[in-house]
Structure formats: C-alpha cells, structure tokens
Amino acid sequence: MSTFAPGSAHLICRALVVDREGRVLHLRSPAELPGARPEAGDSTLLEAALRALTERTRLARGDLCLTPELLTTPLHVEASGPGHYEFTFALHLAHELPEPLPDTDWLPIEQLNSDSLRARLSALKLDGRPVPVNASTPGLPRPAKAPEAGGTELNIVGVHLYAEDDDGRVLLGLRHPDAAFAGATWHFLAGHCERESAVACLVREAYEEAGLVIDPADLELAHVVHVLHGPSARPRMQLVFRARRLGGTPWLREPDKCLAWRWWDPDALPDPLVPYARTAIDGIRAGRTYSELGWCPA
C-alpha cells in the first residue's frame, strides 16, 4: 500500500482554472498547473490547491467559482510515481479578467499533458451554474420525525471506510471519551453526509480525520447497515465503502475526536466496538451486502 508522511512532497494539490472559452490557465515557468503540498493550515486538499493558485498568480478567491459537483471532489487523481499522488481540482472564472495574468497562458484543453486529465475535463459539463468558492455549502434542514409509524421520514446517511492492510487487518479508530456518539469505543473512520455525495464525503473525511488520500475511483460500496437506535430515534443508513488503495499512513489530525488509529485482525476485533461496525465487518467477510439493526421483526 502506497504511503506518504504528513506534509511530504508525495502529495500535490493542483488548481485547474477554466475560462469562459473553455481554455485552461497554465504557468509558463515551470510549465504546469499551479500546485502545492498540503500544509498544517489547509483543512482540505482543495484549500491547498487554492493557496497555490493565489500565491502563484494574481487571481483572488473572488475571481473563482466551483461547479457544485466539484465542491469537495477532485476532478482527477493521478499516481505520478510510487507513493506520489496529484489531486487536481477544476475551478471556473467567475467573470472576465480586466487584464492578462503575467507569466501565464490560456491553453486549449487539447494541449494539456495528461491524457486522462484531458478526458475528464472534456467530459465536464461547463453549463451548470457555478458556486462561488468562498461561499459556504448550505446544510439541509432536519425535518421532525414522522408522527406515525410507517410515515415518511428522512434517514440520516453515514459513510464509513473499510480499509485493509497487506495482512488483511481492518483500520479502526478509538473515539474520544467526550465524543457525542460511542465515546471510548472503536469504530470505522466515518462521517455524516452534508450537501455532498457519499463518496465525496468519505474522501473529505478520510483526509480531515486521518490524513489519508483516496481516489474516488478506488472506492466501492461493500455493505449497508440500516440502523434504528431506539423507537424515538431517526433511522440511519450506514454506507460502508471498501478502499482498494490508500495514499498515506493514518495519523491523528483530530485528536479531540479520535485517540488512536490501529489495524485489527478481523478475527480478534477490539472491545468495545460500535455494534453496527462489527455487523458490517461480519457481513463483508461473509459476502453479504445488507444488514439491519434495531428494527422489530416484520
């Protein structure tokens, strides 16, 4: 499994800016897209790419837009060498620039060096309404529970990482004792979906919580657990994704939420372990794709 140390040169985040004519902003020296390594102040990979862009050009964040589908998910991830990853985020100009940018060129898509990046960009829909990059992503309101059993009720959606090392051990984290859920208990790397896709959420959570880099193309849905924690609780749809490849070694980026990351033999899982996490691990090993917990038998 490819790894990189926190802050090492093995991870580069690049910004690909597209103008209204579909051309791409390119630096003349060196001849490449603006890019930088993530630093301690970068909360996401996208932040590193934006920092590189604003430092290397005269563009300000107010000059840029992101399409909604790329707000958290990179356009392209490429392994440029053993343990070396490049994340490329596509941004759009929010308006025409009053003057040319120095030491840059606007090139047609066909002149990009990467064949796979050209293909991804060519397939990107450029006619959607852009979202300003400095705007926060709105959250969805949580409706009240349906008053009657069987009524319509929105489920909370959680995403979880099922990752194995070369010895078949499963990655779990020990939650902080003060955590709102399952304090001092082992659990998957996990998070709640905000206004984003499930895969985008997991890619974001993996980096924010443990410094892990995951190409969305390397994730596959492995198991779903439909959970009801009690008669008055909102139901939860827990999606567990298997990562075919990871970039990085897990480390504590949020020590107020997680005390340790550790690889566990699935035949000797820790105790206490979140019950539905154990159910998912057992289901994956048995080749099942769906389980239920907390629901009364039909």
Rank of each mutant, 00 (worst) to 15 (best):
P275F: 04
V203Y: 01
G128I: 00
E209C: 03
D42S: 00
A123L: 12
G139L: 15
A180N: 11
P130Y: 04
A200H: 10
A277C: 13
L59A: 04
L154A: 10
N113G: 14
E205L: 10
L293V: 13
L140F: 14
L171G: 07
A135S: 13
P100L: 03
R195D: 11
A146C: 13
Y290R: 14
E220W: 00
L91H: 05
D166C: 00
R195N: 13
R245P: 00
P147K: 06
R118L: 02
G22Y: 13
G287I: 02
A280E: 12
E32V: 04
L45N: 06
D42I: 08
Y207V: 02
V213C: 14
P143G: 05
G128Q: 14
A298N: 15
K257V: 04
Y162K: 03
T152Y: 15
R56W: 10
P82E: 15
I109H: 09
L161Q: 01
R58F: 07
C296F: 10
T185C: 05
V159F: 07
A260T: 14
V199G: 02
R204T: 07
L101M: 05
R58G: 13
G158L: 01
S2C: 03
L117I: 01
W295A: 05
E209H: 12
L53H: 12
K125R: 15
R142H: 11
L46F: 05
R37C: 12
R142M: 13
W264M: 03
R285G: 08
P266A: 02
E208K: 09
V213W: 05
S122K: 14
V157P: 05
T104I: 00
T3Y: 14
W186S: 00
S29A: 13
A146S: 15
A135N: 13
P143L: 02
T67N: 04
E39I: 12
P130S: 06
